[in-house]
C-alpha cells in the first residue's frame, strides 16, 4: 500500500498512469470515440488542414487522421498488451515451476529458455513472419514465443530468492502444501518483480510492433496503426513533413509514459530491495536478466 501511495505522490508517475489508462479506454471504445470512419476516403480532402470535422486534418487519401489515430490504438497498444499478458502469464507459470521445484525440471525448463533466448528478438519475429506470412497477429505470436522465456527467467530468479527465505522454509517444514505456499507466500512478493518486468518490456514491444508495421510487415492496409501511419507519412516526408507529427508524437508520448511509469514502479520497489540484504544478489541477477533483452525499435 505504501508503495502504491508513493506512486501517486509522484506526480509524473500519476500523470503517466492517467495517460496510459486514457489511451486504453479510448482504444477500447474506438468506434464510439472516433469522430469519423477511419477508412473513408475523401480524395477531395487530401492533406487538408485541421478543420472542425477533421480535427487533425486528413491524410494522403483524405482519411481522418484523428480517427485513424484512435483506431490505431487497438493494434499498436491494446493487442500488444494482450500479448504481454499472455507471455507474462505463461512465463510466470513456468518460472514458478522452475524456481520452486528446482532440480531436473528446473534445468530442463531453463535449457528451453536458453534456446528460445538464443534467437535474437528481431530475428525470431522475422522468422515467424517469414513462415506464417505478414500480419500483426503473427508478430504478436512471435512476441509471446520470445517473451515467455524472458519472463520465466525473471520469475524464476525472483521465486528462488524468496523460496529461500526463512518463513517459506518454515511453512514448508510445517507441511503446508506447495500450492498454498506459492499462492500465499511467494506469489505476492514476486508480483512486484513481474510488474516491473512487464512494464519495462511493454514500451519496447510497442516500439517494435510499430517498427514492423512501419516496414510493412505488420498490419496491412487499409487498417490504421501508428507505425503504418508513419510509414505512409514517410512517403510524403519531404513535401509534407507535418504528416508525421500526429502519429509520431502519439507514439513518443505513450511510450515515454509507459517507460516513466515502469521506472516509477521500480523506484517504488527499490527501498525494499535495498534494505533486504538477502535480496542483494538476486537483485543484480534480475537486472542482468533484464538487460539481456533490452531492445529498442
Amino acid at each position: 500500500m505504501k508503495r502504491l501511495r508513493y506512486l501517486f505522490n509522484n506526480k509524473l508517475a500519476a500523470l503517466s498512469l492517467i495517460l496510459i489508462s486514457a489511451t486504453f479506454i479510448v482504444g477500447i471504445f474506438a468506434p464510439w470515440m472516433a469522430p469519423n470512419d477511419p477508412n473513408e476516403v475523401h480524395m477531395e480532402l487530401r492533406f487538408a488542414s485541421p478543420s472542425w470535422e477533421f480535427l487533425l486534418g486528413n491524410d494522403h487519401l483524405g482519411r481522418c487522421v484523428l480517427s485513424r489515430l484512435i483506431h490505431g490504438i487497438r493494434p499498436s497498444v491494446l493487442w500488444v498488451l494482450a500479448a504481454l499478458f499472455v507471455s507474462a502469464g505463461l512465463g510466470t507459470i513456468i518460472g514458478f515451476i522452475a524456481g520452486y521445484r528446482r532440480g531436473r525440471i528446473d534445468s530442463f525448463l531453463m535449457r528451453i529458455c536458453d534456446i528460445m533466448l538464443s534467437f535474437p528478438g528481431y530475428v525470431m519475429i522475422l522468422a515467424i513472419i517469414g513462415i506464417l506470412g505478414v500480419g500483426v497477429e503473427n508478430i504478436l505470436l512471435a512476441f509471446v514465443l520470445i517473451k515467455w522465456a524472458w519472463f520465466a527467467r525473471i520469475v524464476r530468479t525472483s521465486v528462488m530468492g524468496y523460496a529461500e527465505l526463512e518463513y517459506v522454509k518454515f511453512s514448508k517444514a510445517l507441511g503446508v502444501g506447495n500450492l498454498r505456499i506459492m499462492r500465499t507466500h511467494i506469489l505476492p512478493v514476486t508480483l512486484p518483480d513481474i510488474a516491473v518486468a512487464s512494464s519495462s518490456a511493454y514500451g519496447s514491444m510497442v516500439l517494435q510492433i510499430s517498427g514492423f508495421s512501419f516496414l510493412g510487415l505488420g498490419i496491412q492496409a487499409p487498417h490504421a496503426e501508428w507505425g503504418m501511419m508513419l510509414n505512409e507519412a514517410r512517403e510524403v516526408m519531404f513535401s509534407r513533413p507535418e504528416m508525421m507529427l500526429a502519429p509520431g508524437i502519439m507514439t513518443v508520448v505513450f511510450v515515454s509514459a509507459v517507460n516513466f511509469f515502469a521506472d516509477a514502479i521500480q523506484v517504488a520497489l527499490d527501498p525494499k530491495l535495498r534494505t533486504n540484504s538477502s535480496n542483494r544478489k538476486y537483485q543484480s541477477a534480475l537486472v542482468a536478466e533484464k538487460m539481456r533483452r533490452d531492445e529498442v525499435a
Binding site: L207, F214, L230, N231, N259, V296
Partner: peptide, 12 residues
Amino acid sequence: ILTSMPSYLLAA
C-alpha cells in the same frame, strides 16, 4: 524521450 522514440521516426 529519445529512447521512447521509434527509431524510424528519429531517422526520418
